[in-house]
């Protein structure tokens, strides 16, 4: 479904240019659960941004069912994200002047999803619906950002460190809920994490180092969120 071919990406002007992605190729099947591991600064977030159409690669292509999104106009790219992509950021990025309910609604409305209260409840946020982001703890904000992405019912869900701010118990329950929804809705997951244990839940594991993929393998069996170590 997603085929990334020889993608390069650099930041910075001519003289202090640094190449972050150095020729990445990757193939992710529909319904896959891919986990990207790698040291801090190895380019994981950048890869996620390019793969999800938030950014264009300098060269190479990003194909969704054969369509190269790197070549789309901004307008088409926006429409593409609206149809297909859900995103959970490392830094949450909630809308600061809207409460939890409205933040989740922002995602839900794009998918004409009126039952988003279910998602809020499943993530243990029912009590917090009327609260604003600045009134929430880091972990609660992270769960709102998860709820917002899931309420959008995306075809592909990108997650950047979705459990970074969560304690073990909440972390497990959030991952468990995401997996349950995946079973039900059959979306594709691409997740970045520092926690190597989470890789045991994945179908595909990708390991990155300094802008390159150094290892890629498929797990024979997948563990659930309650079976992995933490």
């Amino acid at each position: 479904m997603i085929k990334i071919e020889n993608v390069h990406k650099s930041y910075g002007a001519k003289d202090n240019k640094s190449e972050i992605l150095k020729g990445i190729s990757l193939d992710v099947k529909r319904g896959d659960f891919a986990v990207i591991l790698g040291a801090s600064g190895s380019g994981k977030s950048t890869l996620l941004n390019v793969a999800s159409g938030l950014e264009r690669p300098d060269s190479g292509s990003v194909l969704y069912d054969g369509e190269n999104i790197a070549a789309l106009t901004d307008e088409k790219l926006t429409a593409f994200r609206k149809r297909k992509i859900g995103f959970i950021f490392q830094q949450y990025y909630l809308l600061p002047n809207l409460n939890v309910d409205k933040n989740v609604k922002m995602g839900a409305e794009l998918a004409h999803n009126n039952d988003y209260a279910e998602v809020i409840a499943a993530l243990g946020l029912s009590e917090k619906r009327g609260k604003f982001p600045h009134e929430l703890s880091g972990g609660e904000q992270q769960r709102v950002s998860v709820a917002r992405a899931l309420a959008k019912k995306p075809e592909v869900l990108f997650l950047d460190e979705p459990t970074g701010a969560l304690d073990e118990e909440t972390g497990r329950s959030v991952l468990d809920y995401i997996c349950k929804l995946q079973d039900e809705l059959k979306f594709t997951i691409i997740m970045v994490t520092h926690n190597a244990n989470i890789a045991e839940m994945a179908k595909t594991v990708i390991r990155m180092n300094s802008g390159k993929i150094v290892e890629q393998y498929r797990n024979q069996t997948q563990k659930t969120a309650y079976e992995i170590g933490w």
Binding site: L54, E75, T78, A79, F80, R81, K82, R83, I85, F87, Y93, L94, L95, M106, G107, L110, R148, K152
Partner: peptide
């Protein structure tokens, strides 16, 4: 953020 989610200009 809205643009990330696919809201148009």
């Amino acid at each position: 953020i809205m643009r990330v989610f696919g809201y148009s200009r």
